[in-house]
Design a protein around this nucleic acid. Sequence first.
DNA 1: TTGTAGGCGTTATCAT
DNA 2: ATGATAACGCCTACAA
Lengths: 329, 329
Amino acid sequence: MTRRPTLEDVAQRAGCSRALVSIVMRDAVGASDLTRERVKQVADEIGYRPDPHAQRLRRHRSKLVGVTFAAGQEFHADVVDSLYVATEALGYDVVLSAVTPHHDEARAVRTLVDDRCEGLVLIGPQISTRRLSELASRIPVVVVARRTRGVDAVRSDDVAGAVLGVDHLVGLGHRRIVYLDGGRAPGAAERLRGYRRAVRAAGLPELVATGGLTERDGADAASSLLAADELPDAVFAFNDRCALGVMDVLIRSGVSVPQQVSVMGFDDSPLAGLTHISLTTIRQDCVALARAAVARLMERLEGTVEAADAVDVVCEPALVVRGSTIPRL
Amino acid sequence: MTRRPTLEDVAQRAGCSRALVSIVMRDAVGASDLTRERVKQVADEIGYRPDPHAQRLRRHRSKLVGVTFAAGQEFHADVVDSLYVATEALGYDVVLSAVTPHHDEARAVRTLVDDRCEGLVLIGPQISTRRLSELASRIPVVVVARRTRGVDAVRSDDVAGAVLGVDHLVGLGHRRIVYLDGGRAPGAAERLRGYRRAVRAAGLPELVATGGLTERDGADAASSLLAADELPDAVFAFNDRCALGVMDVLIRSGVSVPQQVSVMGFDDSPLAGLTHISLTTIRQDCVALARAAVARLMERLEGTVEAADAVDVVCEPALVVRGSTIPRL
DNA sequence: TTGTAGGCGTTATCAT
DNA sequence: ATGATAACGCCTACAA
């Protein structure tokens, strides 16, 4: 395997200086059209590609945005996708660092900082608020999908999302609407608040039960529901997975969904849409989330913003109506 | 925000040369224990961290392994996790490049190559065999979870996995075992072959039906099954998602699983285990897959292997027995 | 054990 | 418009 071509190689074959080649490759001013053409052709011929490491070493700005995310999480994946387009539009590159069992968040962040990323986007971080603030004091940080005081955050309006869901169910004529709470999960408090507000506004009873994040939690909740005297008209679960658990147990027990009980979730995970499950749910606007996160990061990087005050950007979620919710019979 | 400390800064505060600091930071030989102690302390104090870009520029080897993966895919996430530990043990760093709707495989690979990764690990790549070979001729490449001629590949032994599954069902006393085929998906041909072999060996009828990759496909297949005169004893689906679709339709139709029909899948996706679904399935050994991929890559990088011949490493999958399969009643 | 010099591939500054 | 030259932060001889 032969050495990769460098600026020097291009310069020699094109019969000009390295400086000129550099100018051409960067599309900077200061080269004649003729030279430009020639250099580009030579570069193409010998397959020259600038070395990003050398570029970043020499430039004062690495033009890198570090991103931590939970590998395997659909929602995170969607945000990452949008992050790619948002940053590219601004001339930045993304450096990914996955959070996995053997590669925890602290390590992921460390890598990113060492890599001289100019700013960080943390998707659904789990670390403590204290460490988050600590980090943010050393490097621009924007947190996605988690509310945090003192650090820039971009998240969905979970209150509004829950209201959206309840209003949908109310509109279908349901009266006894049970909400399955998400406990201490990010957004859980807001969703519960939204449920309470909407249900109260509609003059309906507040029926809050313990839910959770997983199918297992949903299944348990459904079992409790079945043990009660009367089945509710509808169940609104903290998230899709929980909703799936509910549906499964109900159906196994001979309760037809949505005929007897309407079920809806939150998140619009691919499972909800791709399958015959056809779960009505609330979708978070990943594109808006990513765009807002990058926009805020850029403000920090440009230094056009006071270091002290953190912002809390809120994006509107949307109702996705599918087959698991129908009018009350 | 002040400038990040450099080697020079450490050297000054420690009262020695940069070279010495470099030696200490790299844990190389040639520094007294006293100096070592002093330098490390100073480095810690001023928060010095070596600049990887500068290191890679100076070193002849970037010590980088590029990895492409489908963001949001659990299986890929598991492999990535194992890749982190496998590479770290060998002193290499991982550079992630996600394959998403707006960031396709070609782009992901290009980034990795530009970043001067020494070798690439492609998890479940979708690009054509031709482009794969082309790439592999320019840079060491190992493909994970896809069979490819001419390029190093590491994958599960799908034939053995299918045999494992069938033998399990046979052992439970099932006679009429339907297999739901995966069509042209990676591994589908092998799994079908394994099914045929095992079923024939047990003197049972080959019952192959059209399945697919999604819950939808499984649901369709289940509907066909229900339309037939007689229900099979067990259904072995191409993958977990397909199996889930089968289970769902059967249960909705009043057929109890596993009492009337045992169902099993393939992949051991988190869905299978995390939930009350409790699907018996075949698990791919992600750790072994990752380890083997890295090991092979290292052979290439060390140049201890002929460029011409590609290897096809096969890892043994394992049976994971859960609740969706029980003895024939 | 320690220090000095040179260069990795690129870009920025200054001449020409 | 073009070219020489000096960094960027680090590592690797080699010399002391």
